[in-house]
Design a protein around this nucleic acid. Structure first.
Length: 366
DNA sequence: AAACCGGGGCG
DNA sequence: CGCCCAGGTTT
């Protein structure tokens, strides 16, 4: 028999639920998405919280709900404004999927977030975790909501040594949560597991002496809480050399470019750039050629005003930033625009472009 | 199953 | 500097 099944049978489930939920009700943080159980707000918060810390999310959540208070508001909003609301949060496909799903809820479900696992899971961007979170928190339905926090907590409580980096391991934890979850208060139960993971059962140096479920925890009994969970994945980043330019026309407007609708930073705006596949001699002249060949852009390039490093999960951009001029006959279109400094506020830029703009502003101030 | 998709904070 | 974070989609 599997270890987790044996350990699961040893847990006093009622006492575990009571200890966990009582702690949560006394110690939970006061967070803006906990003020009510509006399924839409729960949904927005859960999407924002994917791979993003609570402290980062709070101001974004408040502004997002101000701009788009209801499903109808978000469904009808311009995508550019939606991306602007997400600017700086990262993983921009999250919000494009969210708006797509909200439109489907508006049309297919009369604006009401569905409350069955099958229907809600079919929505764009709603996977097993988010489905369980919305169903339990907004609707009180006892579905597991297994995220990284929950896998860490459960791996310790039940001494589960499966590699949580493997997609197949999630099923093990979902099965355990289905056995443990409170049917009287699944909302508090799921949130308590995550809150415990955030505040007590932390990745490094968990505060076991403060833990409300220490008496139920097999890892604590065995003294292996610091060895769990098992997580193997290693990160390998690839370096990419880029040349980018702040290009001005005769009126002092800057040239910006809309990225493609799929892939990295989809549909966000950037300053024109080219990839440098080899380390170049006479780089400046060759960059002018690359702009002409790759972007059909006739430019007059000045010197490098600085270098920027921007780190993604699996990628590092090394940007050589130039200034230059664009020919006066340039024709704008959907993909290329000339904008004043004030007009830039309407467009959503990734942080890498914001770093470039900051560099440029410091450059011209001198 | 593995790769892809951002950005910030912390020890 | 490496690791982590209230994951999901695509290949």
């Amino acid at each position: 028999m599997l270890i987790e099944q044996k350990n699961l049978e040893k847990i006093n489930i009622i006492a575990f639920q009571n200890d966990l939920i009582t702690w949560f009700k006394n110690e939970q943080r006061d967070l803006p998405w906990r003020k009510d159980q509006d399924p839409y707000k729960v949904w927005v918060s859960e999407i924002m919280l994917q791979q993003t810390r609570v402290d980062t999310v709070i101001p974004y959540f408040n502004r997002f709900i101000e701009w788009f208070p209801t499903i109808e508001d978000l469904a009808e909003a311009e995508e550019d404004k939606v991306l602007k609301a997400w600017e700086g949060l990262g993983y921009y496909s999250r919000v494009r999927n969210l708006q797509s799903a909200v439109k489907e809820v508006q049309e297919k479900y009369n604006g009401e977030v569905p409350n069955t696992p099958e229907e809600i899971s079919s929505l764009k961007g709603v996977g097993p975790y988010t489905a369980g979170a919305i169903l339990s928190i907004a609707y009180g339905i006892p579905e597991p909501a297994v995220d990284g926090n929950v896998m860490r907590v459960i791996s310790r409580v039940l001494s589960i040594w499966d590699d949580i980096a493997k997609p197949s391991s999630r099923k093990v934890f979902e099965k355990a949560v289905r056995t443990l979850i409170s049917h009287e208060d699944p909302s508090s139960f799921n949130q308590a597991l995550m809150e415990l993971g955030a505040l007590i059962c932390t990745p490094t140096s968990p505060s076991c002496l403060l833990c409300p479920v220490r008496d139920h925890c097999h890892a604590f009994f065995e003294g292996v809480q610091n060895e769990l969970p098992i997580k193997t994945k290693k990160t390998k980043t690839r370096d990419v050399q880029l040349a980018a330019a702040i290009l001005l026309d005769d009126n002092g407007k800057m040239l910006i470019h809309k990225r493609p609708a799929s892939g990295l930073l989809a549909n966000l705006w950037e300053f024109p750039n080219v990839e440098l596949h080899h380390s170049l001699q006479n780089e400046r002249e060759q960059v002018v050629d690359l702009f002409k060949q790759n972007l059909t852009l006739e430019i007059d390039l000045k010197k490098i005003i600085g270098q920027i490093e921007h780190v993604f999960s699996h990628l590092v951009w090394n940007l050589n930033v130039y200034t230059g001029k664009i020919h006066s006959g340039f024709q704008e279109n959907e993909e290329w625009k000339l904008v004043s400094f004030e007009e830039m506020e309407k467009f959503a830029f990734p942080v890498s472009a914001q770093k470039m703009l900051k560099l440029y502003l410091e450059h011209i101030k001198k």
